[in-house]
Amino acid sequence: MQKSSKIYVAGHRGLVGGAILRELQARGYTNIITRTHSGLDLLNQADVNRFFEEEKPEYVFLAAAHVGGIGANSAYPADFIYQNMVIGFNVVEAARKNGVKKLMNLGSTCIYPKMAEQPIKEESLLTGPLEPTNDAYALAKISVIKLCTAYNKQFGTNFLSVMPTNLYGIGDNYELAGSHVFPAMIRKFHEAKASGEDVVHLWGDGSPLREFLFAGDLADAVVYLMENKNAEDLRTPTGDFVNVGTGKELTIKELAGTIREVVYADVAETGRTCRIEWDSSKPNGTPRKLCDVTRLNNLGWKAKVDVRKGIEISYDDFLHGKVRK
């Protein structure tokens, strides 16, 4: 990409898209186009085709998605499979028809089987049953990966896909009913501190192992790949994609303890804190999910922000950022 290349960031108001937009701007890209949902409905194929025909973007970052935590995925599976599949198919097809030079498709490591061998390699795709609590979302994301790979094979396109691990960071969704575990914990501990409550209730038993990636790191990775790599560099027997993560994991219980420390840091000298009660009647989700990031590291990129630093940045954003959900 050249600094003046016309770049479309789909989903620029979300956690991932916002991070990509800031990363591009920080690197000096000057011809970035975006659209809000009111300006472009990505579920409407005719609107998407018209947008690509009129704007003719050279490069596309497909970060638009319908996302949510375990509760939302379990309650609204039809929304998750339909909307994510249609958004992906509309954008990828329009990109193909309008000669986009390179497209970056953002997926998720939830595409892998629930009991995949750990750490999870890209070759594990479709080797076993998915996690039931988010299989609808996963199936949609798998379909878009396969679409990009098929287009590369049949039409000679240069469409890359990345599978980031659990994300968090600036601009996250802190709405308790639909958020992921990381931002939900930040909000719960903050509200306990603000109200003086001495207990926070969390789902599951805290035992699952998870890997967390700062969204700013993901943005750095995908821009690096768009600048330096092609689809063939990411090619595996299961598709043209690569994992993006830190290669490090911690338990949900450890995550909760660290978030509590950060949130209560300004009142630590008073001895104020809260205890955690785990609700084991709620689902844990996949017991362990760690990316194998060997291929990405060999492509020249490694994560930079550790979890505690990321929590501090995220909590500051929760307190002072524009996203106050």
Rank of each mutant, 00 (worst) to 15 (best):
101 K>N: 14
103 L>T: 05
104 M>G: 12
105 N>L: 10
107 G>H: 01
107 G>V: 10
109 T>L: 12
110 C>W: 00
110 C>N: 09
112 Y>L: 08
112 Y>T: 11
113 P>T: 11
114 K>Q: 15
119 P>T: 06
120 I>C: 05
120 I>T: 12
120 I>Q: 04
121 K>M: 11
122 E>F: 07
125 L>E: 03
125 L>V: 10
127 T>G: 05
127 T>W: 07
128 G>F: 00
128 G>Y: 01
129 P>Y: 01
133 T>Q: 09
133 T>M: 04
134 N>D: 07
135 D>V: 02
138 A>M: 01
140 A>V: 06
146 K>Y: 08
148 C>I: 01
149 T>S: 15
151 Y>E: 15
151 Y>K: 11
156 G>N: 08
157 T>A: 05
159 F>M: 02
159 F>I: 01
163 M>C: 14
164 P>I: 13
164 P>K: 12
168 Y>H: 11
174 Y>E: 06
174 Y>W: 09
174 Y>S: 10
179 S>C: 15
180 H>R: 05
180 H>S: 15
181 V>D: 12
182 F>L: 10
184 A>R: 10
184 A>T: 08
185 M>I: 06
185 M>C: 13
187 R>N: 02
192 A>M: 13
192 A>K: 12
195 S>N: 10
199 V>P: 00
200 V>L: 03
200 V>T: 06
201 H>S: 13
202 L>K: 02
203 W>D: 13
204 G>E: 03
206 G>L: 04
206 G>S: 11
208 P>E: 07
208 P>D: 07
209 L>A: 14
210 R>Q: 11
211 E>F: 01
211 E>H: 03
212 F>T: 10
215 A>Q: 07
215 A>G: 07
215 A>R: 05
217 D>M: 06
217 D>T: 10
217 D>K: 01
220 D>G: 09
220 D>E: 09
221 A>P: 01
222 V>K: 05
222 V>M: 06
224 Y>C: 09
225 L>E: 07
229 K>M: 09
231 A>Y: 04
231 A>H: 00
